[in-house]
Amino acid sequence: MKTKKITIFGVLIALAFILSYIESLIPIPIPVPGIKLGLANLVVITGLYVMGEKEAFVLSLIRILLVSFTFGSPSTLLFSFAGGILSCFCMILMKQIGKFSLTGVSIAGGVAHNIGQVFIAILVVNNILMIYYLPFLLISGLVTGLVIGMVGALIVGSVKKYHLVTGNNN
């Protein structure tokens, strides 16, 4: 890996930490502890467009593990993992399809993130009733994804503009 890439990796992981911390301060009106907004997806979408798919996936894994061990508990790790991995795969897939903008890809990621969390909630408490929170989580995933997508587009735009990375993808 080139030095530039390692630097960007470091910066993105640091950003993921900050976002996860902010996220842990925001209460969500849903009685399932561990469910998060998914702000750290900003880091993954930036990684996906600035570096590539493999890097985005590695970034997701590192951030899930580091952040869960820092701010979370074993139960939050499960949620972050299900949400984060599903979201990452979904964004990679959506980007490959090529019919969506960065913001669109981010929205899909946000929604997938929350669907993953609801399924873990159903499994963990062994109760299908958790499905009742899905509509709220779909909408919150949509809004979070939209905001993250817009911010992400700006970041990716300026990273490319100043040639911080010699991009190998569009």
Binding site: S101, G104, L134, V156
Partner: peptide
């Protein structure tokens, strides 16, 4: 960046997600 932030497909996807959420 250059291109528009939201494409037509993005809008359609958002519409579908919203619809599913509202119906449920």
């Amino acid at each position: 960046m250059g291109n528009k932030m939201l494409k037509r497909n993005d809008m359609i996807m958002m519409g579908i997600v919203l619809l599913i959420a509202l119906i449920s």
